[in-house]
Amino acid sequence: MTTFITGGSKCGKSRLAETILSGFPGTKLYIATMQPDGAEAEKIIARHKQQRAGKGFQTVERYTDLAGLAVPEGCGILLECLGNLCANELFGGSGCPEQTIPAGLEHLRSLAEVLVIVSPEISSGGTDYPPETCHYLRSMGHIHQFAAAMADTVIECVYGIPVVHKGVFPC
């Protein structure tokens, strides 16, 4: 079962993702994609760690190359988030997130019993940006379409309210 959760900044995506996995009885992995490169990132990471403390997740830090990550079969995975992963791949990794991230998502889906993918919605704030930012927007759009097509359930989080675009609300 795969759920794709997107939505604006600080709108409850992570909390919902954690709730979906709360009743999962097996091994639960939290795949963290944000690189701790500065005080602001460290603060965000600390807040997320605190939010999921005691919820039974093992944290795996993975900034690029999801397809190469070994995960146990039948586990529960919370992947957070595609926005960081895409930036890491585009600006410091493979350079082609539109290939590597879909391959990585397929890899996780093939092994996980429950996969929850979190990603920021960034497509409706205009396109008047420098070329590298436009490239990032385009990559994210394609990756979101892939993730939504692959997922059983697609949810847009609107200030904590889940809006289901595909499938059935999982919890």
Partner: peptide, 8 residues
């Protein structure tokens, strides 16, 4: 309509 790169 839709955001950029959403498959329109």
């Amino acid at each position: 309509i839709g955001g950029a790169y959403q498959g329109k």
